[in-house]
Amino acid sequence: MSEVPVVSLEGVSKSFNGVEVLRDIHLEVARGEVVSVLGASGSGKSTMLRCINWLEQPDRGTVKINGEHIGVDAQGKQMSVRALASLRARTGMVFQSFNLWPHLTVLQNVIEAPVHVKRIPRSRAVEEALALLDKVGMGHKRDAYPYTLSGGQKQRVAIARALAMAPEVLLFDEPTSALDPELVGEVLAVMRALSLDGYTMVVVTHEMEFARAVSDQVVFLDKGKLIERAPPERFFTAPESERVQRFLATHR
């Protein structure tokens, strides 16, 4: 008996202004699995990730979170805004540009959604948030405002914010691409720890080392098509497609 995948994309396609950006994507992510998404700039990685929590609406295909349709139901009927929001709350997203809320302190950023979306009691939210901030090494900055933090610190807070909703899957869109090289390591270390804790993660990244060491599966997008899917050893040593071989040759 196989378990229901945490994320499943079936035949997802998406165009912007008549240009097809995703073409018939199939992807399943099992519980506890880390999937890295690689591909050249403009190949549709972000768009695919954003279709998972319906920040982008696919033109065709279905997206399911834990077996539940998101965005449109099985009959193709548009979901209510409220139902969509509560499904989204079951995913956590980490952005390239952090996107912390600048008017709130570090701690307030982390408890904001638990208190105002999930409506859990503030005292419990604070307790959980402080534990998460310690986990990402940001407990000492609980009362700081985002503008005082370094990029790496901001991203670690953003990760704690995503974790605070106890999501079933974490979606990372190039979480280290906006960071100075010396700050990349601290964020990758946190993500590696999360993978060891058993979090289900989909990670769009250009960090080959990370993809190789941490992922269970690596997928490759080329012009909106998912052309390769393999465990990292095979992906990095013996990729089937010639396109991936060329990509790897230029990204050492």
């Binding site: 929590n53 920040l55 989204r88 997203m93 996107n99 809320w101 959604a113 979306v117 995503a162």
Partner: peptide, 18 residues
């Protein structure tokens, strides 16, 4: 206003008046 903050809020399940 940069779009990121609102997008992050939507991703967390915020919508409407809240």
């Amino acid at each position: 206003m940069p779009a990121g903050g609102v997008e992050a809020a939507r991703a967390c399940g915020f919508h409407g008046f809240t």
